[in-house]
Computed example of a mutant assay.
Amino acid sequence: MNKIDRIAARIISKYLRKGNMARAMRDILPRSGLSFEEREEVAKIVHSIVRYILYYDFLLERMNLDKSPKNYIALYHRNIDVDAPKHVKYSLSPELASVTPDEFLRIINREPETTLCINLPRISRKEAIEKLKEEGFEAEPYVPESAVITNSAARYSSLVKGGLAMVQDASSQMVAKIAASLGSDILDYCAGSGGKTLAMHALFPKKVYYAYDINRRKLDSLEKRTSVWGMNVRVFFDGVNGQFSVVLVDAPCSGVGAAARNPEAKYQNEFDKFSNLQVSILNEAKKFVQSGGYLVYVVCSYTPQETEDVVMRFLNENKRFKVEKRNFEGKYFKLGRFGAYILVGDVFYMAILRRE
């Protein structure tokens, strides 16, 4: 085995013992002595094996071989293709396989691209692309108008370091565009560390933004990020006050829509465990929607339990809210009963509910 395969084998060995692919990589890669390009190749190997591990297990059993890191890596390099049941071939839990449309399989099993969100109030996308190319990175415009597809190493570009861009999936940026387009003052209710807050400001810098999250440490991070980004946002640390024309709820979820980045998400079962929390958060957030305003529900998932079922439960309990679909047009959307699936990057579900 060459040095890249040896480091990949160490990571796979730790993953097989303890799970948590990302932690196994963090524990081993930084001290591997590999160059950035070599570390990227290791990451590609590890992601691919975890992404298709049920299929690799199937092949190893047919070949009567041990499920060892060495044999997984050998299969990765051989690229064998044989018939297998759907959940094995594409390596999903049986429950997830039963609700995954074929068109989503390509998205969740792709090699993920690196997409930047450009801080448009401070630099144009054209200027950002030129700057990236000057620094040796490939860069092309994407959708929406804040997005640029580039090399993974661009995470360390001067644009990102200087607050002129951030790494963010295109579907997240599309969520930000649609949500912020609906009103003049927007509350990001599950703001986390502020990714969508920053993206909304990049696209609509003259609107007024508020942010809340139950996690205080994430809000501290949000304040620091928005300062570097150059935007003003009121952060609610001790609970939300007031009502707003738009309340964005990017709720905690299974994350299966982002399985290209975190392939372990594909092996989950029991998606009902997320739905009660999601409905509960919507019922909290609805109090902050002004009359005629919008409650925007978003999850990075496509399971019925976390998407259409949650919205149906909420609507049944809240007759003053009605569904709107007018923003879901074009090839980047797949319509559902109440909302739509956004397909320009990771798979996001989005439903727009208007308070009468």
Rank of each mutant, 00 (worst) to 15 (best):
V311W: 13
R26S: 07
E95C: 10
F58I: 07
E37R: 15
S124E: 06
D272I: 06
N215Q: 11
L282Q: 12
I80E: 13
I107D: 11
E95V: 12
R261F: 09
I28E: 07
F333M: 00
V289S: 14
S245G: 10
S13T: 09
E306H: 11
S158I: 09
E145W: 14
R51S: 15
L248N: 03
Y72L: 02
G292M: 14
Y56N: 08
V228C: 03
M350A: 09
L203M: 13
L182W: 08
S221G: 01
D27N: 08
R31G: 05
T197P: 03
I107T: 14
I186Y: 12
L198A: 13
P69D: 03
I12R: 01
Q290H: 01
P30V: 03
Q268I: 05
L120V: 14
V289T: 08
L159K: 02
R10K: 08
I53Y: 03
S301F: 09
S158F: 14
V148E: 01
S157T: 12
C253G: 01
E317V: 02
E41R: 15
V246L: 09
E38K: 11
Y267I: 04
I4L: 00
L219V: 03
N327P: 00
E95Q: 12
T303G: 07
T226D: 04
Y15E: 09
L96A: 02
Y349I: 13
E103Q: 05
N262C: 02
V310Q: 14
E308Y: 06
V175R: 09
R62P: 12
N269L: 10
D309P: 00
A8T: 11
G336D: 05
N119W: 14
K14T: 06
V208D: 06
I178L: 06
S245E: 13
Q290L: 15
L248S: 07
S275R: 03
S124I: 07
R106M: 01
E130L: 07
